[in-house]
Design a protein around this nucleic acid. Structure first.
Lengths: 221, 221
DNA sequence: GCATGTGAATGGATTCACAGCT
DNA sequence: AGCTGTGAATCCATTCACATGC
């Protein structure tokens, strides 16, 4: 599809998700002063198979030492680089409702490589206000300007479902090519733009399905 | 592991997730008055393969009519029943911070089979307050009482990571056997309890990885 | 000896392709 | 004809098992 195929195009989302998990673990291990870690030790922590971990870590080069394991600090730096977290990426949140505000103040979204620039909303009553942690609400109409002047690379859709497609298009038109969507609808995609969707309700329904299937009084009690 | 194996134990999360998506689509189709729908039409809406949809829908019985398709209303009722959404399940949220409050007021969590009873928090300053939509904050110490007296079946963990394991154990001890966890840590599981974890940061890191890999100026522009 | 890195084997999920019903 | 339901085939991810190197 694209002409300059970077030799290794095929790293699945499952793999990158695990890399993120390993990274978090390595950060913890480094903080407690551990120098090396083996694939077996990592595997135990996450109920994973050690071969899986070795395969994941070997995709981008050989970073372990046979007979010893992986150097925590080195591997951590390597993963940070691989995931593109070694420089800050600016983020904008579309929708300053409950969810948008919560995400703006969410710890994990404002550290380790990400910086939330602003929330954009179409309700004038919210303009000029800020989230609790001080992230400003700007008019939706100025989305494009904000994105360009602040070099925003990632957009988060936290608007009601009916507004989601429109919001997506506005983000893409402003030059965004990576979008995280919380609206439970199927977005009409545009080429060259990466979309990740998080459907909160599906998780609850999955639990409901589980409960229905133990609905005979068991549940371990 | 369990002695009374309900003949069909093996329905993957991937499948139930799709069933949830189909259900949402059917609700929409019913609202616009469409009577029947084919697997091809559904497939187009979600970029899925029509055989996949037919397989998913055939797991619990034959609900289509050859040559015609599926009856929207019938199939919808059938999915609601299959997912256990035909009766209300009560939910409690542990953690009345930004995320907990946002989830308490999140539309999708308070309709179609779910009812959020309360938020539980250990900060006395929050006791007796409510979320914007009126869901009360109760003391964390009364978690167990609330769960039992209100017949709560699902717990949501929206506390900071260091408190997540403790919160999980408290929920399980109070009789909860389905938990939705938003803390980015590996929970030590207890048997007979279903856990679904949502890691918000991993999604951002996945976008970062994508951006890093187009970092040669492309991105469709 | 011990732990990585990796080809081969396995296991699951998706897709194909067609038989069977309306 | 049109569309479902499903065995067979394919694709992808995980796991096994061992050769390789410290």
């Amino acid at each position: 599809m694209s002409q300059r195929a970077p030799e290794r195009e095929a790293i699945s989302e499952l793999t990158t998700g695990r890399l993120s998990v390993y990274l978090r673990c390595l950060t913890f291990l480094e903080s407690i002063g551990q120098r090396t870690v083996s694939s077996h030790e990592l595997a135990e922590r996450f109920h994973l198979n050690s071969a899986q971990i070795r395969k994941d870590l070997a995709i981008f080069g050989e970073f372990g030492t046979r007979g010893v394991g992986y150097n925590v600090a080195t591997l951590r730096e390597h993963l940070i680089h691989t995931l593109g977290l070694d420089r800050t990426r600016n983020v904008i949140i579309a929708g300053a409702g409950n969810l948008g505000m919560a995400l703006a103040d969410y710890g994990g979204f404002n550290e380790g490589g990400f910086h939330i620039i602003a929330l954009a909303d179409s309700d004038p009553a919210k303009f000029g206000k800020t989230s609790r942690s001080g992230i400003p609400v700007v008019p939706f109409a100025s989305l494009s300007t904000t994105i360009r002047t602040s070099s925003v690379e990632i957009g988060i859709i936290a608007v009601p479902s009916p507004a989601a497609q429109h919001t997506y298009d506005a983000l893409v038109d402003a030059g965004i090519c990576a979008v995280l969507n919380f609206a439970p609808i199927q977005i009409r995609l545009r080429p060259g733009v990466k979309l990740k969707s998080v459907d909160l309700r599906i998780n609850l329904e999955s639990l409901s399905f589980y409960l229905k299937n133990v609905e005979d009084g068991t549940c371990g009690f």
